[in-house]
Write a protein that binds this DNA or RNA. Structure first.
Lengths: 209, 209
DNA sequence: CAATTTATGTAACTATTGTTACTGTATACC
DNA sequence: GGTATACAGTAACAATAGTTACATAAATTG
């Protein structure tokens, strides 16, 4: 049954033999919403292929402060896992499921042999790095060049996109954590967005208009 | 003569046959200080191996504003080039030589075949991604979690390290560009660092104490 | 060596963001 | 239903960073 799930998302990416290998070796994992998949500082021993759901990737600083880097969606894998697997180093980031999520865990030993054997695997790994690299640049753009109101708007739109829903169910405090700001600031800016007619604020939810 | 330069930096990384291939196919390129190697928006058709010198990698936003991401040193390659080569997309960054620099340019066609043929090449490419990824995280840490005075201090130390000299020859305006700040702010903070006895400011130069 | 350009110092002000403190209000729990 | 808790609104203030404006001094140019 792994192969069915797999083929739905990855059949147009991977060769048939590779799909078979993955379904034999991979371990299906299902996690609920808000499940912590990787903590900063942890060792990583297998790499995930996302079947469905959304995973939030966050950066932690030394004082435990956080910043959202990007979201992973179906068809994505985690670049941090790749680098950790190779370097045998600890994770530098934190991964939390944003929605209930299904993924296939692949033991890292396979990585190198598949890189030789399958062109599609090479492309997948390199493309993953490329995509993550671009999202990091995007994250840098946001914090370096944009003011908090612009960052907030971008955040709301992006988050609505990945969960495919115009209504976000979350508190102002949660947003403040993701943007590394404070609840009061976020409330203030949200209220301003509401006055501009761009959103509608309710308790525990924000609707994008 | 390419092979001599190459062996000095890369003999402990690459197999002998790969070194030979590189020296046959690669094109030696020497650029002076402050030479623009890649502009944002440009197409990239070959990937560089740094033999010596230092290259500054900057991010541009739409309004032409800049932000220093990291420095490349000998033994490094440019991850952006890798992603551009694969994706046939335009460069998202700008690369400027910080010192006179010598590099070997490798046409991208070789990339995929070498990935199959040489384990050392696979490791090199993946390690490059890993290293650049870490430096991006570091850049994000700086702008997200540190105040301008801390960023400035880190910048001065880092820059002194890569050029291996405690005296930096540059103007306050140049620093302001790299940190995406303004000259007045940098002058103010530098003066404060001088008062703390951490640096000595002269015209066109800053000495780290 | 006078004139111009470039680099730096500094003050006064503005804008943005963060902090503290207190309020009201919905929801959950007993 | 009453109490506690979590969420959101708002005001007043502080800290940081950016802007404008001008002064001074070193270097460069003719």
């Amino acid at each position: 049954m792994i192969i069915d799930e797999l083929e739905k998302q990855y059949s147009y990416i991977f060769e048939k033999e590779l799909l078979l290998e993955i379904s034999k070796i991979g371990v299906l994992k299902e996690v609920p919403e808000a499940f912590e998949l990787i903590r900063a500082g942890q060792f990583v021993k297998s790499m995930p292929l996302l079947l469905n759901g959304v995973i939030k990737i966050l950066r932690n600083d030394n004082d435990g402060e956080e910043l959202l880097l990007y979201f992973l969606e179906k068809g994505d894998t985690c670049a941090m896992t790749l680098t950790c697997c190779l370097g045998e180093t600890r994770s530098e980031i934190k991964a939390i499921s944003e929605t209930p999520t299904k993924l296939i865990m692949i033991p890292i030993e396979k990585m190198d042999s598949w890189l030789i054997k399958y062109k599609s695997w090479r492309n997948f790994v390199l493309n993953s790095y490329q995509n993550r690299f671009m999202e990091m640049l995007d994250a840098i753009d946001s914090i370096a060049f944009n003011k908090m109101d612009e960052r907030l708007e971008k955040y709301l739109k992006n988050r609505a996109k990945v969960i495919d829903n115009n209504i976000l169910f979350c508190t102002h405090q949660e947003i403040a954590f993701d943007l590394h700001s404070s609840r009061v600031v976020i409330s203030r800016l949200l209220k301003s967005l509401e006055n501009q007619g761009k959103i509608k604020i309710s308790r525990n939810s924000i609707e994008l208009l």
